[in-house]
Write a protein that binds this DNA or RNA. Sequence first.
DNA 1: TGAGTCAAAA
Length: 792
Amino acid sequence: MNFRTAIAPLPALERNRNLFLSLINESTTLSHLAQAHAQIVVNGYKNDISTVTRLTHKLCDLKAINYARDLFLSVPKPDLFLFNVVIKGYSNNNSPRSSISLFTHLKKNTDLRPDNFTYFFAISASSGFPDEKVATLLHSQAIVDGFGLDLFIGSALVDLYLKFSKVEFAKKVFDEMPERDTVLWNTMISGLVKICCFEDSVLVFKDMVADAEIQLDSTSLAAVLPAAGELQQLRLGMGIQSLATKLGLHSHVHILTGLISFYSKCGDTETASLLFDQIDRPDLVSYNAMISGYTCNNETDSSLRLFKELLAFGERANSSTIVGLIPVFFPFGHLDLTLCIHCFCVKSGVVSNPAISTALTTVYSRLNEIELARQVFDESTEKSLASWNAMISGYTQNGLTDAAILLFQNMQTFKVQPNPVTVTSILSACAQLGALSLGNWVHDLVKREGFHSNIYVMTALIDMYAKCGSIVEARRIFDSMQEKNVVTWNSMICGYGLHGHGKEALDLFTKMLQFGVSPSGVTFLSVLYACSHAGLVTEGDRIFHSMVHDHGFEPLPEHYACMVDIFGRAGKLEKALEFIKRMPVEPGPAIWGALLGACMIHKETRLAHLASKRLFELDPENVGYYVLLSNIFSVDKNYPQAASVRQVVRRRSLAKTPGCTLIEVGGLPHVFTSGDRSHPQTKAIYAKLEMLMGKMREAGFQAETVTALHDVEDEEKELMVKVHSEKLAIAFGLISTEPGSEIRIIKNLRVCPDCHTATKFISKISGRDIVVRDANRFHHFKDGICSCGDYW
DNA sequence: TGAGTCAAAA
């Protein structure tokens, strides 16, 4: 009993009001609340605005939104306070539209003026809309009404814009705030982390640490820890840990859990489990972090042990536990066990949880069970953005680029807004497919949505432009990026390699080292690859040695294969063989394949037999080797042998991938196969081809027949190769694009020597630049010369 | 006199 009530009892009205208020506060169920409501009505308090407001609020908390609405409507003249409570109530009960309608009603039909609370609640509600349009509208109204600089509203806006991946908008709000409190900083950091802008979030965190005015709290540290883990920045994570100790937050359960996840992502489960033991009473989230930590590091026994321990404590596992546990099985390709977990999820009803269905989709696509992945995706009733992203990237990683793009378009008809993760996947699909016009469209989307500070997105754009033939545009983006990581550098170097620009690739590699960026295995592969395609033998040799001796890298089979390729393409076949013999590891199919490819270019039959013999032993399923070998016999005019190799292929019913070529005209893709007559303009295409062949022969063109697989007469062979898909695509390009414009085509296999020579002639005759992307690299044909130097 | 933002696993 407090002093005031002791000496002077409250007036009756106030005393009763307090009674009702505490009655409402203590209610934990709807029926308690209904009883309290009855008491209020009986005692004539049904028009007491503060009591009714408290009751309405509590009803909203208990999810009785319709009850709350009826109560609100029964009040003859609700004040701003009550409006605010109901606007928030709708927002918290999955009714953002009702929330915003009420806000509009308040502005239009009452003489009340919204205050900072009203705007705060309405802006929070606008996160339930498919895009940020409602939010920007409210934002501008808030500014007009003088609440633009309110810290709560500022934080809500930053949170919201980041949820819609509008990084630039969020930054603008953040920068324009006259004062920034801890919460505003935290909102910025955690929002960036949630949309995978890890680099950005770390930069903001560092700014926050540098700001002496601002106090860091456990939220700040917990927010940035996932970024440190994703970026595998061990020093940063340890820095955060010591900061936590300095601030006395080291036993805070959120921070310990974050650190467990961090160390697990860095591969250090030992430290993670030490931290786990430091938690007094680990909760479900901590268990899940540790379980998934063990799982990611393939310590499956520990995962399962901890899972059992969790159940033994009587804790119920939730969807995240399963999500963390499912991948236990896929490093071993244990499809049956994944199916088992799937069944368990179906039986216990958690399969409708979007996190679970997303995890299952991911696991199935990593097991290359793309149909099962799609089935789970289709059956999930509640699709989150993550579900869409998992399915799209599943398609992309399995090379099903058409399906990925189709699903991406489908997602947009469902009004699901793509985020940077979606964009990164879809750009990878464009890169694989060479779909430049879709790539351009996605680039516009990146600009529109403000994703251009996302390092993953920008790196994917570089890759896309490089693989779609626009190496200059790729470099422009590369140069425009302030923050680059090793993948960014790799993509650019690899792009130069694809285009045969060996010198540029080497220059960039040198620059990368000067910038202090540590090269990865992929970096060396890209540089070696570039050397190979540009015939830079000495440089390649030097880089390989530097990789082993200066950088301490253990070469992988693909590095060895690349070296064999460098020697082999340059015609130094004996040197290549010598290199293979000196390798400290047993040469695998990639290495012999590289040698065989080189033998093919240089028509070296003796070594080809050796290489192919090894290949048949190591990789009997791969058709490519049979084709190469058969071609080599054909070169020697040893047709019976060539035929017998082809028979092996037929007997084992190994199918050769049919060659096809894609060309985009007017933003539409046209695909041609060899001898194709299905195109609506077939007649004109073949006529153009006839005309070209005539002019080419006049200019001295002779058909190269080496790769024609059949031992028929030369003249007949000429007829067969001249309708290769690339020739059809080029002919179509010539008749359907502006004179003088560049022609770009994409071939799924390596371009054959005949088409290569023919394209050189065509580029000269037609005065067109022709860019050909084949399975290995780019060829830029100009004025009768190819950028590859006939060397591919 | 009844209302408010950010945080750990997936």
